[in-house]
């Protein structure tokens, strides 16, 4: 029995091609919420039966160290990866949809490795905190993460 933590985790953003960049979480965190909707049918006021409702996107939130936003030495930066605007990056999503990327969280400890993949992540907010030197990103994926 053990407990996994950020010290075991490598967090990578990938595009639809071969590009990827490792995210420095620093003192931040990665959180997500798997969701599903359940609909209940009532019979004269009492719950009679239930069934799964419509799919819901999986909300993901993560923080990372505020390095250069666009002035890094190799023109590959985290914000550009999230927005899929880095040079050479292509979206993982379908054409005509908002640009998306994949998030891959690898947790490795004692030669055991677990990979948690968030497919087609699309950002919705980027919160910049210069005093803390961090940027927080929130967004969602079309499905709950895949764990291998």
């Amino acid at each position: 029995m053990g407990q996994r933590s950020l010290r075991d985790a490598t967090f990578v953003i990938k595009d639809g091609g071969n590009e990827e960049i490792t995210v420095k979480i620093g003192e931040g965190n990665i959180t997500w919420s798997e969701k599903r909707t359940v609909e209940y049918t009532h019979e004269r006021g009492a719950i009679d039966s239930s069934r799964l409702g419509d799919d819901e996107p999986c909300d993901v939130k993560f923080d990372f160290v505020w390095d250069w936003i666009e002035s890094g030495s190799d023109s590959q930066d985290i914000v550009g990866a999230i927005k899929v605007t880095n040079s050479g990056w292509v979206s993982t999503g379908a054409e005509c949809e908002p640009d998306a990327c994949d998030l891959e969280l690898t947790i490795e400890d004692c030669s055991i490795e677990e990979v948690i993949t968030f497919s087609d992540f699309r950002w919705t907010t980027l919160d910049y905190d210069l005093r803390a030197g961090t940027i927080s990103c929130s967004g969602s994926c079309v499905a709950n993460p895949n764990v291998t």
Partner: peptide
């Protein structure tokens, strides 16, 4: 302090 993997403060 190792704040996250391989990142030392």
């Amino acid at each position: 302090r190792e704040v996250s993997k391989n990142l030392l403060k």
